[in-house]
Design a protein around this nucleic acid. Structure first.
Lengths: 225, 225
DNA sequence: CCTGGGCGTGTAGCGGTCGTCACATTCGCT
DNA sequence: AGCGAATGTGACGACCGCTACACGCCCAGG
């Protein structure tokens, strides 16, 4: 298992090498192809997951079948923790957006870690607080911004987390279909497509297969406010 | 200070009487009239607050001055904790919706409590997880429900938490103006007013000053789905 | 006491944004 | 080469924000 990513994850960074080594023995490795899901809404869950490589999406399904995405998570991030602290069924479905490698930690092992290592709870509290902040941010965006604004914001966020410099801009290999991007910003696929087309037409973006290249970062930032 | 509410709060329920007594010495009491704010967006904060009595609203202001509310919190609930775990300025403004009594706990005292009492971190993690769940729920509502649906949901939620049985229904003394209710559901005051008027006209509600009486709970539930 | 002004509430019309439907086109994989 | 999925684009209509205004209530101050 490639433990480098985990070693650097904030949750474990403070642990001594011995404790960390013991912990990695408790982790379950998991490999997933694109599209397969780790857990679904309503499942009983007792595992928390770390992303070693790849990306996963957390989504919810309304009773009429429409979906919306809560977050896209990448390497070093964790998910599935809520079912542990607040025992009730999972409220979201986790699905691999690309080929993904995960490490799972079960409730029991986490509890003993938390009891012996107060700094780990502090890190978990911080991780949850950060997620709550992000979610509150999305909430405000839904109320205040129009669809193009939210698309711009989403692209900038994805660029921050997954972007790599390219010859003529920032390559954001988000690996999402426009349908998924639409679910992420809470809009229809068609409206998102039109927003993207407008950005391209203005020379702010170039579209590639499941990726975009940001050509004019400042203008895109401007549009996202 | 009326410590009964605090004693029963999940965060402290597991503590021994001696530890709890020592803790209450560290708490700062705070009384606020309607409309005054405890902290504002951008402030540096190192306090966490418990509501002893009254209600507070957590809100954000967009750069153009428009506001939206993240939550209405009542007795026994806590807020302001995010700035402690994830050190950065406050991202919301906390304002008293009615006359309110608070107990404040500062960062330092909380840290020592967390280190000596692992079960307190567990409770805090649970509280945060619950809040995150609620926020995710609101996010989905914004995407999937129309304004009347969100108003119905908000009223039902307020009824759950603050409702008291009355002769002809459930009295929900939410103490919010329609403007505040609108900010809570992410809509304009006018649209919320029309939604309320429609509910009244159908015989599901009766309006009172800063309160509603729910007359037909099942129908309102139906409308909120 | 009664009067004016501010605040909260009720309601209507206008226009813009965006969801839905419908269809063409292109991409990517077998 | 061919088929399904993903993307591009237009038309239409609904929802809802915005503007505008009227009304009732409470309280301060003449």
């Amino acid at each position: 298992m490639d433990i480098e990513v985990l070693r650097r994850a904030p949750l474990f960074a403070t642990l001594g090498d011995d404790v960390f080594a013991a912990l990695t023995d408790e982790l379950t490795e998991l490999d997933l192809p694109r599209g397969s899901s780790i857990f679904r809404e309503g499942d009983q869950g007792d595992q928390l997951y770390f992303i070693i490589s790849g990306k996963i999406k957390l989504g919810r399904t309304a009773q009429d079948g429409r979906e919306n995405l809560l977050a896209i998570l990448g390497p070093g991030e964790l998910f599935g923790e809520m079912a542990l602290f607040d025992p009730s069924p999972r409220t979201a479905t986790a699905t691999a957006v690309s080929e993904t490698r995960l490490a799972g930690l079960n409730n029991e092992n986490l509890r003993t870690l938390l009891e012996t290592r107060p700094e780990v709870s502090a890190q978990l509290l911080q991780a949850l607080a950060r997620r709550l902040r992000r979610t509150n941010e999305s909430l405000a965006d839904l109320v205040f911004s129009d669809v193009p604004g939210r698309v711009a914001k989403a692209l900038l966020d994805l660029a921050d987390r997954f972007g790599r410099p390219a010859t003529d801009g920032i390559l954001v290999a988000h690996e999402l279909t426009q349908e998924e991007l639409a679910q992420l910003v809470g809009a229809s696929r068609e409206t998102v497509n039109k927003a993207l087309a407008e950005f391209v037409q203005r020379g702010w973006l170039r579209l590639e297969a499941r990726a975009v290249v940001i050509l004019d970062l400042p203008r895109l930032r401007q549009r996202s406010r």
